[in-house]
Amino acid sequence: MNPYLPVLIVLVFAIIFGCIMSGLSHFIGPRKRTLSPVKDEPYECGVPMVGERDKMSVKFYLTAILFILFDIETIFLYLWATTFRELGWFGIVEVTIFLVILVAGYVYVVKRGALEWD
């Protein structure tokens, strides 16, 4: 059996299950809409909505980019970890060089204060 067949089955099932759950209240819940001007308003602690939606901090963006870069690094390390026994010391030296370069980047990131949330 193809190992991805169960993935496909579970995927289809999960989508169906999600749709059923998500739509359940729509069909079972009360249909009569009580009309009130404030009912549909976004939650704002009971007072009228204040202000527009703010622009978000650039920090989130920076974090997301740094995540990708370190994620790629982690994946390379996974490849090394699976072949660790065969590569031996040679592999360790390779990965050390790889990591030294990246740690230099990491130190730069920290020194520039990109990871400070103020």
Binding site: I65, L66, L69, I72, E73, F76, E94, I97, F98, L99, I101, L102, A104, G105, Y106, Y108, V109
Partner: peptide, 11 residues
């Protein structure tokens, strides 16, 4: 090894 430099540049 060059990939690490690429990642460094991106950072």
């Amino acid at each position: 090894e060059l990939a690490s430099i690429l990642i460094l540049l991106a950072m």
